[in-house]
Structure formats: C-alpha cells, structure tokens
C-alpha cells in the first residue's frame, strides 16, 4: 500500500471551496508550510479553494503560512484557541473589519474535540469554561457534585499535517515538540495529507516508535528540508 503523492500540487488539488481544514502545528512547530503554500498557489491560479474554515491552535503569524492564506482572502472562519502571535496583523485586520469569523475554543477543549471526532465520540463533558462566556448556550450537567460543560466533536474534511519521518504506508513520527496537534488531526479528518521530511519503505520505522499509525493517513508528500514558520517570520518573509 503506497500512499505517496507525486507533488505538493497534487496533494492539495482536490480540496473544495468551503472545506473545513485542520492544519497541524503549534505556532511554527509542526506547521506544514509547504502544503499551505501549495494551497495558496492553487488559489492564486484558479480562485479556489475559498471560503475555507481553518482549524489550528493559532491564526497565523507574519505573512506566511496560515497568515498568508488569510491575507489572500481564502479563509472565512478560524476555529482556534489563541489568535495572537508575534505578528497577528493578517488575522487582526480581517477580524476587526468583520471579514473573518472566529470560533474561540479553550486549548484543551480544542484538542479533546478533535480527539473525540477521531475516536467516534460525538460529545463529552469537561469542567473547562464552565460559568464563562465560552460556555454560553452549551448544555451543562452535574457529575459527582461538580458542574461540567458538554462539548461536541470537531471533525474536518481535510487535515494538512507535518511529520518528521514517514513510511509509504503512512506510519509517522514527529520531531521534538512538533507533535502537538498533528496526531490528533490525523485521526479526525476524512482525508489526511502529511508532508514528511524523510520518506522510507515500510519497515524503516521501528513499530515501537510509530506515533501515528498509517491507518489514519491517506496521502504523503516528501518535503526534504522543510521551512520553519518561526524562521520565516523572524526573517520577515512574505508569501
């Protein structure tokens, strides 16, 4: 079973307008910059995909990656916990102008909603956000004398992720703290596409070290020496 895709362009070719897209990473750590930029290239050439709903912990930084998607006008809504960064101008401008929607989700709730979708659990209860404005309108229930908020699963049409090492079956390992949301999002999307820095044959990753098993992965693109978002932001690269 070879899940390798021929190019970045091929990897993002089928993403439709209005798609709900999970993008891996926390800040620059684990952000699939090359996949995001391939999606922007397609939008610039064809006007599609647009009206996207993007799920990520943040809402972009500087003028690259998710920030560049927002600047290009491809994003209708962000679902995130912390739309703030060293340079969040791209999101801030659109948000304050009323041109982009925001669903703010506490970080642990965001992670658990994604995990729940991946595990087929439609809703769960958490103490997080109980009694706050982020729980408004949500069902609450008492368990063993304490109040909890019901939160629903969060799924996506597509997940665009970054891993360090992959094999052609889609087994993945991650580099340092770049793991973050990537293994959760891999489980929660109808179609999971991953850029890997190293791609090997089945058997090149020790089974004991696999973090994301290949069953959660639909397509892989080999991107050796990927760009690091934080480095691009610090050198003020504009995409």
């Amino acid at each position: 079973m070879d899940k390798t895709l021929p190019s970045l362009a091929a990897a993002v070719a089928d993403i439709p307008d209005g798609a709900q897209i999970m993008i891996g990473g926390f800040g620059g750590s684990g952000a699939p910059i090359e996949l995001i930029h391939a999606l922007i290239d397609r939008y610039r050439e064809t006007g599609s995909p647009r009206d996207l709903i993007v799920i990520n912990n943040n809402a972009g930084n500087g003028s690259i990656g998710i920030a560049a998607m927002i600047k290009a006008g491809m994003v209708a809504k962000m679902i995130c916990s912390f739309p703030r960064s060293s340079n969040a101008e791209a999101f801030n401008e659109k948000y304050l102008a009323g041109e982009i929607e925001l669903e703010l989700v506490p970080q642990g709730t965001l992670a658990e909603r994604i995990r729940a979708a991946g595990a087929g659990i439609p809703a769960f209860y958490t103490p997080t956000s109980y009694g706050t404005e982020l729980a408004e309108g949500k069902p609450v229930e008492e368990f063993d004398g304490k109040m909890y908020v019901q939160e629903r699963w969060l799924r996506a049409d597509i997940a665009l992720l970054k891993a360090e090492t992959g094999d052609t079956m889609g087994n993945l390992t991650y580099r340092l703290a770049a793991r973050n949301f990537n293994p959760l999002m891999a489980m929660a999307a109808d179609r999971t596409i991953v850029q890997v820095s190293t791609l090997g044959e089945p058997g090149t990753i020790e089974p004991e070290t696999v973090v994301t098993p290949g069953i959660f992965v639909d397509g892989l693109v080999h991107v050796p020496d990927p760009q690091q978002e934080e480095v691009l932001v610090r050198t003020e690269v504009v995409y």
Binding site: F26, G27, G28, S29, G30, N57, S85, S86, Q107, G108, L110, A111, E112, I114, R115, Y174, R175, L176, A177, A178, R179, N180, F181, N182, P183, L184, V211, Q228, E229, E230, V231
Partner: peptide, 26 residues
C-alpha cells in the same frame, strides 16, 4: 524552533524529558 514552550519561546530539555500530543498534554 521545533522545541518551544506554550509561549512560543525556545526551550531546552532536561534529562528524563518527554514529548506527547495535545490531548495527552491536556
């Protein structure tokens, strides 16, 4: 920059450190 904390600042690891995904973290 793949090794950062929640404030997006670069960190180092002490002996015995571990990595885990966000659902385990929370």
């Amino acid at each position: 920059w793949d090794l950062i904390n929640a404030g997006k600042k670069a960190i180092t690891l002490n002996p015995g450190a571990s990595f885990f995904h966000h659902a385990d973290s929370f």
